[in-house]
Design a protein around this nucleic acid. Sequence first.
DNA 1: TTGCGGCTTCCCATCGCTGGAAGGTCAAGC
DNA 2: GCTTGACCTTCCAGCGATGGGAAGCCGCAA
Lengths: 151, 151
Amino acid sequence: MNIGEAARRSGVTAKMIRYYEQSGLIPEVARTDAGYRSYGDDDVHRLRFVRRARDLGFTVEEIGELLALWQDDSRRSAEVKSLALGHIETLREKIAELEAMADTLQALADGCSGDDRPDCPILADLETGKASAARPGPRRFGVTNPKSQEH
Amino acid sequence: MNIGEAARRSGVTAKMIRYYEQSGLIPEVARTDAGYRSYGDDDVHRLRFVRRARDLGFTVEEIGELLALWQDDSRRSAEVKSLALGHIETLREKIAELEAMADTLQALADGCSGDDRPDCPILADLETGKASAARPGPRRFGVTNPKSQEH
DNA sequence: TTGCGGCTTCCCATCGCTGGAAGGTCAAGC
DNA sequence: GCTTGACCTTCCAGCGATGGGAAGCCGCAA
């Protein structure tokens, strides 16, 4: 089947399939004489695996490891679990960070009259830094990024 | 003062200051004869404002609006609050998304023996899209079977 | 005068895509 | 055969908010 059909069946766009192939996540597939990529059921199966892993927030790199483990009959489930737990930890850190932001902001917003007057504790806090406790440290790293993906 | 000193005092890197200037978030400052940017206390003040807003997860675009409101004496606090509440909503959505991922993954990991055997409900779920039940084995936990994502 | 650190601009890389342009291919309808 | 339109191909660019680094100028001290 062509890439469009594989995309439809797997829930991964054709663009993404090419991207995954180019980045080495999935192998190159055979081509027709005209140069069209040709997919089989196994390929679709793998693509669905990839999509579900993305849905769980794994990075492409991690998915590469998951795929390798998946295809390795002599894998140790401990390795899979370790990968998963590491990812859970990453997720929980981001959650905590976002929650700190939301809570701080909520407290400030609660104190804001939200009317026609200019006085506002939110701006006051941004100006003075008085209540901003949402910072984990001096080094900022990619915080806001969790892709929102619905197909 | 030079950009390095302004960076030190504001907690924003020199790189970021140039980026903020280039993207129009902050105004261009005066230059020395040699072309060095020259900052005053009010510039540092504004940079600190920007940094704190970033710490709360506002996008650069939103910070532009916050800065405009901050400098507008006739602002209505309702506008600031509305901006803040909108951002809180965005944060909460991301949190919910990450939590759903973490919870699903945690349930799967709980059902994984994590030993030398290859059987693993995490991979099974990625493969089939359905969280698999706990398998026979020494360590069994009640695997709650939350949302699998089939769109 | 040499040396060093700070400043300048500019370009590239990140991550996981998305969009679009320019062009080849395929099957159906006339 | 010819056209149409849906599909496929590659390549290039851009997103957001930085970080890294190159090449070159500037300021100050020894």
